[in-house]
Structure formats: structure tokens, C-alpha cells
Amino acid sequence: MKGFAWTSAPDLAAALRAGSATVAATMAAAPGPAAANAVILKAGGIDLLDLMKEGLLAPQRIVNLRGIPELGRIAEEPGGALRIGAMVTLAQLAGDPLIRARYGALAQAAGGSASPQIRHVATLGGNLLQRPRCWYFRSIHHDCARKGGRQCFAFMGENQYHAIFGQYGCAIVHPSTAATALVAFDASVELVGARGARRTVALENFLLGPEVDLQRENALAPGEILTAVLLPAPKPGVRSFHLRQGELDSFDWPIADVAVVLELGRDGACRRAGVVLGAAAPVPYRARGAESALAGQRIAEGTARSAAIAALAGATPLAKNAYKVPVFEALVRRAILGAAGQA
């Protein structure tokens, strides 16, 4: 790890003045340890330090966002929407009474991620903006397409943890587990640009698949800071559930995770369903087939089972990850029943 200069931003204005570059653009411009000379933002620092230790990034200056009080709050807006500051940790999300009551799947997704140590340091903003974990991407020996090289090593190589959907030239899975639940809740992100301009983008549109851009996972612009995640006010009758399955239950990544948000009518029928798969595709994968299979139906074992099959229809597994298909089918079915309180 190389030396770097350090700025601890006291407020958002100071952080914006620092003129940060995005990690993705820095790495694409000069892959390997040469990815230097950039001003890089730091939240919890879990992913940033990993990239530095892996020799993939050598920032010239690090700007710490952890000391900005306004980014660390969870607040209910008038009208019932929830605003979660970007520096709120995964542990806070998992433990927050309001989030547990109204957005249960998000609390479950955050609370099941990584390990207790990591959850107490990792922030929601950093979690959404972390770079993928593909081992070729993380290796300085592999100049892969996402880092500006010419090939994807995963297609012909070790791809047991890679995507089963949407591998357009790159087969990463999006690393954020929280994002799975957030997309299911139709969350948005709030971004503030270098000149103070604020924009709000649906998370689903903010995260970019390789068919849109092979070298970055999101639409963060240079100099921009992610300030908050916005959750719409919960509709009446909404119930949610998140399930993850790792090879190990502790200190491990999921091989599959599923968030289900059901809007149940008084008659028990499902008015609207959100079914999103994590660790399945380069972005959280919205299983539209499953969503429409559930719409208008009463939730029972049979409906859950057919929705699960619909969710996996069209999967395009690679040589070593077809096992994920049955794992996802089980998880989708169980998460639907879990959301309906029938698990």
C-alpha cells in the first residue's frame, strides 16, 4: 500500500470541494497500482482499503466522509417516506426499529451481510458503491474487460460464484446485498454534484449492467457524492422478506439472495409483488416473471412454487454455476412464503 494524503471533511461542502474522482474511472484510466493521482472518497473504508491492499488503487488523497453528521441520520419525511443517510452503517440498518417494522427485508439483508465487525463499519452508501468481488477483477494478474482489458476470464474459467443472468461481456454479480432489498422496495438514491446540484435517481436505474457500461457498476459522476437513500412510504398491507444463502453462515458472501415485497389486499390476494434476486446478475435482478405470477393471487405453497420457477426462467448459467438455479428456486419460494407469513 502506498502513502496518501488525508482529508477529513467536516461537512458536505468541504467534501464536494475536494473534487473526487470515481474509483471506476480511476481504475479504468490506468489499471493496476498505476491507478494513482486521484482524490478518492472514503466511507467505512472496507472496500477502499481492500482495493488498495490488492494493489488495484493508490489514491493520492483520501477524503473521509464519516465525520459529516448530516449523512449519518435516519429520518422519516413528511408523508411517511424514509431518508437514510449514506453514512448509516449496516448494523444500524439492521437494528433500527422503524426499518425493522416497515422495511423488514432491508433490515434482514443488512443484518445478514458479511460479519458483525464489518457491519459496524460498513456504510450503506459504501455498500452500494463497492466494486465487484470477481476474483479476476480483484487480481492484478488479470487485466480483464471490466478493468479495461480485452477479455472476461470468468467465462472460460472459475465462475462458480458468478452471474446466471445478464452476463453481457462480464459476469459479475452485484456485491451489495442491501441493494437487493432496496430495489424490491423501489428505493432511490440522492446524489449531490460538485457544484451542489442535487438529483434523485431510482436505484434500479442508477445501477448499470455491463450492456450499458462494462467498466462501472453505477452512474456516479466524478465529484458526485451519494448523500442518502430514499424509501417510499410503505403502502398498506405491505409485507417483506429477505433470505440469503451462503456456503458458510458467517463471514461469507451469499451464493444467492432474494428479497420479496408483497402488497396484500384485505382479501389476502396479492395486489403487487416485488421479487428481486441478488448475487444473480451484474445488477439486482428483478424477476418480472415471478412478480406477474403473484399479482392477483392468494399466496400459498403452489403459487410460491410457480412464481419461483418463473423467476428462474431464462437463466443462462455458466459452466460451473448452474447449481445456483435450484438454490434460487428454493429461496424465492421460501421468501414469498416468508413475506406472506407462511414460512
Partner: peptide
């Protein structure tokens, strides 16, 4: 899971590991 599901014949296409 890949080994066990393959042994159980539950992987579509039946291959993998």
C-alpha cells in the same frame, strides 16, 4: 451446494462438478 445438488441430480443440464 454444487457438489450435493449435482449428486442429487437437481442441477438443470445435470452437469457442473
Amino acid at each position: 451446494p454444487a457438489t450435493i445438488l449435482a449428486a442429487l441430480g437437481r442441477i438443470p443440464g445435470g452437469r457442473a462438478r
